[in-house]
Each structure stands twice: as structure tokens, then as C-alpha cells.
Design a protein around this nucleic acid. Sequence first.
DNA 1: ATAGGACTATCTATTAGTAGGTGGAAAACG
DNA 2: CGTTTTCCACCTACTAATAGATAGTCCTAT
Lengths: 188, 188
Amino acid sequence: MPTKEKLLREAALFMKGRGYSAFSYADLAEKVGIRKASIHHHFSTKERLGELVVQRAIEDTQKYFEDVEESSNYIVERLRAYMLLFSEGYQEKRLPLCCVLSVDMANLPDSIKKKAKIYFEIQINWLTRIVQQGREVGDIVSSCDPACAALTIFTMCEGASVVARAIENADIFDSTFNEIVKIFVQKA
Amino acid sequence: MPTKEKLLREAALFMKGRGYSAFSYADLAEKVGIRKASIHHHFSTKERLGELVVQRAIEDTQKYFEDVEESSNYIVERLRAYMLLFSEGYQEKRLPLCCVLSVDMANLPDSIKKKAKIYFEIQINWLTRIVQQGREVGDIVSSCDPACAALTIFTMCEGASVVARAIENADIFDSTFNEIVKIFVQKA
DNA sequence: ATAGGACTATCTATTAGTAGGTGGAAAACG
DNA sequence: CGTTTTCCACCTACTAATAGATAGTCCTAT
């Protein structure tokens, strides 16, 4: 793998684990195995690197959404796949990037803040759309509109990530998912 | 107000706004109006200051819980009062301390991490207890046990804080609260 | 030969923390 | 009572470590 790619990947992991402001070029250099100054050859500033990390996350997530939509029409499976984005990093003590970005918001340069907001929107919009679809085929029985349901689902996923790390218990993801299904999905 | 008290209060505000690692003695000194070095006179190290901030939050929260229990027997009112702990800092761009601590976990010294975990437990235990009480008087109709319901409520409150900041929309608190009531509370 | 990728060395700003001194108020003592 | 001593809050001025960033150099593969 090219060094630039390695740097981007490791920076993303650091951000998910500690947040944007709490990792340094020194940490990254040590991890990847090059000198601190060499990182600047690939990414002029830390801010730029941060932007690209979020940009990459956006692209990966959009790709993931497409895959999920292709591989299943059933809302429960789609939601389970979505929830996976939140639980996957748990074992490695990482949070979803969107969760970290929200909390770190006050410390982010404007350019990253802007990208972060786009990232949130994309997720909420996608959720809204699949809830809407689920409703059309009769799988969803939410009393509020799709946008409202999407926000609740988003909220519960973010919350699960925070609480799982807080009390060091991964079961939260399962119980939260079950709760989401219970609230929104029509029993067969 | 004595300087020490001011420092403790402002440090708490900084932590809620930016997290533990992202505020400095310089920030704090400027805000309170004394020299950086003078802070060390009151709090030997930043770690010690952080511990005391969390300790204070624990005590304040326990006091608040007592007040809430005294002033109302009805689960919905108690839950609304609890949710207030999460929404109150929103206008000032602050998160609940427990939320910040969870995300900042990887950056915390062990002593603070320990206190943070106690803080989480206290909240979950209290929620469990009031859910249990609500169940006994027939206000709660949760299909899962009180501990499980408490975790879900905790999760949704934490999530609401994260999402509210992320998309800059305070309505999340209300809609999340309504959702919690819809899930757990028996209609009159 | 040249361009790219990494290097060394250095810079400036900022971090938490320390050493030691100043001034004033309260307490101790004649 | 006045004097002296102690104490406390705060100060100036520093340290070592670390932050992100820069300039210029060397090596290597095309």
C-alpha cells in the first residue's frame, strides 16, 4: 500500500479513537514508520489531512449505502447493516467518526466542520429514504414521518456508541437495534 | 465567589464544551483572570483538577436526583427532569459531561477514567430505580426489565446530545423525549 | 536527468509544570 | 497596644516536552 494511503487510513483510526485534536503528527509518523516531517510531503497541513479523512469516510459510507440497498430490500436487514457502522470499531476501542466529530466539533477548523455536517446530512438523508421505502412496502409502522423516524434511529445509534464505550459493554448495540426494530417495524 | 470555586466552575464549562484534553491552563487562567501559574496553587495538576470536576458533577447530579424524586412521583415528569440535564447546555454549545467523557475516554488519565465510570453507573442505577418504581405503580409498560429500559433511556439521551450538536437542532431533545415516553409509558 | 519520497535539522508556539519572590492579612507574642 | 511571624493568594520568570510546520538535502526508480 502506498504511504499516502497508509497515512490516511491510520489518521482515520486515530481520529475514531481519540478525536481530531488529540492525535499528533508524531503519533501518526511513529505508527506508519516515517518521520514526522515526511507527512507534510503528503498532507500539507493537519487540517487538510483531517478534511481528507472525513471526505474519505463520506465516500466509503456512500458506497456502503449503495451496497446495502443492492443486497437487501428488507428494512430490518438494512438497518442492521447500518448499525454495523456504529458497532464495528468497538473492539478496537473506536467510535464512529460522525460521533467523534460531533463531540469534537468545538475543536475543529471550519473546513472540517463543514465536511462533518455534510457527513451527518448524508446519513440522515439515507435513513429517511430507506424508512420512506420501508413505509411504502408496509414494513414500517412509524407514527411520525420518515424524517422524524430517521432522526430517532440516528440518535439511537449515536447513543449506543457513546454508552457502549462508557460502560464497556457491547450488548448495547444489540439491545438498541432490537429497540429500533420494536419501535418502527411492522411485525410479520 | 472564591477563586478556587470559580476555577472549578469554569473548568467544568471548558470540559463540557471541548473535552478534557482540549482546554489548557492558559485558557482557564485568562477566563478567570489570574495567571496560569496561580492555578497550580489551587489545583496541583490538571489531572487533579479534572478529577475534582467530575467529582463535583457526580455530587451535583446526585443532589439533583434527590430533588427530582422529592418533587414528583410521576415517571414522565421525572424523565423530563432527567432529560433536562442533557439539553440544558445546548444553547451555550456544551454537551453533558458524561457524553464528553465517554468520547474523550481514550485521552483521560486513569484517575479521571475511574471517576467517569462511577458517574455513568450512578446515572444508570438511578434510571433503573425510577423505572422500577414506575413499573410498580403501573406507569411503565416496558416489555424488558428495568435495567434494560434504563440503558435504552440513557442511550437515547446521550444520542440526542450528540445529534443536536451535530445538526445544530435543539428539537431533537423534544422528539427524543416524546419517543421515550411513547416506548415506555402507559397511556393514561 | 529528473522527479518524487523520504530524510535531517530547525523553527515558533504552546503545553503542563516549577522555582522563588511579593504583598497583605491574620495570628502569635512581648 | 504594637510588633513580629506565619500563612496565603498571587505573581514573574523560567523549564522540558510537544505541537504543527518549514527549508533544504539525499537517495532511488524511472
